[in-house]
Amino acid sequence: MKYILAAFPELLPFLKVTFFVMGLAVLFGTFLGLLLAFAKMGKNKYLRIFANGYTTIMRCTPSIVLLFLVYYGVPAFSEALFGLNLQDIHTGVYVVITFTLQFAAMMSEVLRSAIESIDHGQYEAAVSVGLTPLQAYFRIVFPQAFVVALPNFGNGLIAILQEGALAYTIGFVDIVGKANLIIASNYGTHTLEVFIALAIIYWILAIVIEKIFALLEQFFSKGSRLFKTS
């Protein structure tokens, strides 16, 4: 038991690394996911096929396979095609690329279904009072879609955080990577305790994120009324 507790102070500092890398992936992934969602709903057939194909491929590819493909593939292809030598690029870059790609696929579905769930009558009413189509989307449709998307965004956040645990396989030293280093330095004893500590950290993280999003959902659907004065 005491080995579990002893592991925490060694592991927790590396949580920052995990957060930083996954945070970047979420940021870029959301933006890319938004573009893909628009592509899926747009008029251009080729963009639609591309966006849907991209989502299917990401959905069918295990994370470690994607990690290794990016880790070995990006330098190999960029050397052959562009003559760029990427030997000195930090492993973290590949981690961010991989999980950005994955998160974008998740978000393209979440955002698309949220936007499509908003009754088209909202858009029609907006243009009928004189808003341009763009104004109608930004002022009326998207704010409502945002609330609908929130819970699924939260789930996606938890999911990508857990996929991110595999970053250690390409040598990245985040919290999981550090755990493996600790185990190695202990000559393989007390592995169970270290992993249990890791599991607890991730578990608490997931619960905290869930609670935060539950609060956010409450705030956005009803809370704004609390601040209205007649």
Partner: peptide, 22 residues
């Protein structure tokens, strides 16, 4: 359910693989 959904699969694998034999 909360545990399985809240922890990465790889960690579940490690924990179970190291504890089930015990």
């Amino acid at each position: 359910v909360s545990f399985v959904r809240g922890t990465p699969i790889i960690i579940q694998i490690f924990v179970l693989y190291n504890s089930v034999p015990l």
